[in-house]
Design a protein around this nucleic acid. Structure first.
Lengths: 64, 64
DNA sequence: CTTTACTGTAAAGCGAGCTTTACAATCGGT
DNA sequence: ACCGATTGTAAAGCTCGCTTTACAGTAAAG
């Protein structure tokens, strides 16, 4: 699923590892989501939106 | 994860089977989510929010 | 040139998300 | 009393989400 995570992360100057630690997953998980190898769980999507101070709908685009 | 699906469904007068068909899963999946046996995938959460014309954050509450 | 930080990737393994099939319980209408 | 619609539940099975461990590539910094 299309998402803006790497762009948001670039804005905050965080590494994949930084973000992973902040939301409680491994950096491989962040990498896989950014590269759209799979979608996050709903819970992780909430944690990511919370981290970036936005809504899930602002971070992810479900259109195919 | 806490959610309002059965309440929303009651308002629209849909059965679990109706909702399941509308969002493309089985009624067992809807039942399991309503009874909080597991969380939906992010994609299904989007479909449910779309079906009820609201946001994911309005339908699900991640607090514990 | 070596080191350090960051990123990409892979394999094995476990639990979560969802399916199909199937059976039981409740309830309202006829 | 029977019927149809609705809900709860269970087991087997498949794929996805995430972990751990590990190795390779790029790039900036000393």
């Amino acid at each position: 699923m299309r998402n803006d995570i790497s762009e948001r992360r670039a804005e905050t100057g965080e590494s994949q590892a930084d973000l992973a630690a902040a939301v409680g997953v491994t950096r491989q998980t962040i990498n896989a989501i950014e590269r759209e190898r799979y979608d996050p769980s709903l819970e992780l999507a909430f944690d990511l939106a919370d981290h970036f101070g936005c809504r899930i709908e602002d971070l992810f685009d479900p259109d195919e």
